[in-house]
Design a protein around this nucleic acid. Structure first.
Length: 202
DNA sequence: CGTACGATCTGCT
DNA sequence: GCAGATCGTACGA
């Protein structure tokens, strides 16, 4: 079973719900002639204008983050620390700036290509354990910000991976201490380590 | 126009 | 455990 998630999937108005639901889905890129993918194992939700950790907090709308205000189903990619390209999925209604950060994947297709992009010889523990390395492995850069996830460059598939919801832990987001009380919100979703090891897909 | 800094990663101690 | 890398972006002057 390989079903590209349709436009409608991204229109749900609860970004935390989509963030949790995307655990076990497969993020795919066809970039530079290579098909690469991985099972999503960690996400973070950024919930609209009232979330102090969000780039759209207080209605901030800039050249960088304007894609957050589009209808769900597009990529929002931005440069972090001048070094890392972080890949986000825009969700929800137009003019409601919700997005979720893909923080980690378990490699699936095109592993050699991903290792090459990462400048690594073989898989090690931190292969894609973090949002910067995940985007790098998939070849995703800021030039793909705004890209529709219904096209054939970057998309997400359902592949029938079975996820037991009790193996998903929700906790505070990483690196958002500047967000005051919102830094404590349980908007980070991660599949437990033993469940990651057991992951299988068709 | 100038400046401070970040939804991070790595390597060295 | 911690500092350095590295630069586009945001925001104030």
């Amino acid at each position: 079973m390989r079903l590209k998630l349709p436009r409608k999937y991204y229109l749900n108005e609860d970004v935390t719900r989509i963030s949790r639901d995307l655990i076990g889905k497969v993020l795919v890129s066809r970039i530079g002639g290579k098909l690469t993918s991985g099972i999503i194992i960690e996400t973070e939700a950024y919930n609209g204008v009232n979330d102090k950790a969000s780039h759209a907090y207080g209605g901030r709308r800039t050249e960088r983050n304007k894609v957050m205000y589009s209808e769900g189903g597009r990529a929002y990619v931005y440069l972090c620390y001048g070094v890392h390209h972080l890949f986000n999925v825009v969700t929800g209604r137009k003019d409601v700036p919700q997005a979720l950060l893909i923080r980690a994947i378990k490699p699936a297709d095109g592993i050699r290509a991903m290792l090459k992009r990462r400048g690594k010889e073989e898989i090690f523990k931190a292969f894609s354990d973090g949002p910067g390395t995940t985007a790098e492995a998939l070849g995703i850069t800021t030039r793909y910000s705004g890209e529709p996830l219904t096209a054939n460059r970057i998309w997400i598939e359902e592949r029938g991976v079975i996820i037991d919801r009790k193996n998903i832990t929700a906790g505070p987001r990483i690196g958002v201490s500047y967000a005051g009380e919102d830094a404590q919100l349980p908007y980070r979703f991660r599949l437990n380590e033993d469940a990651i090891k057991m992951l299988k897909y068709e």
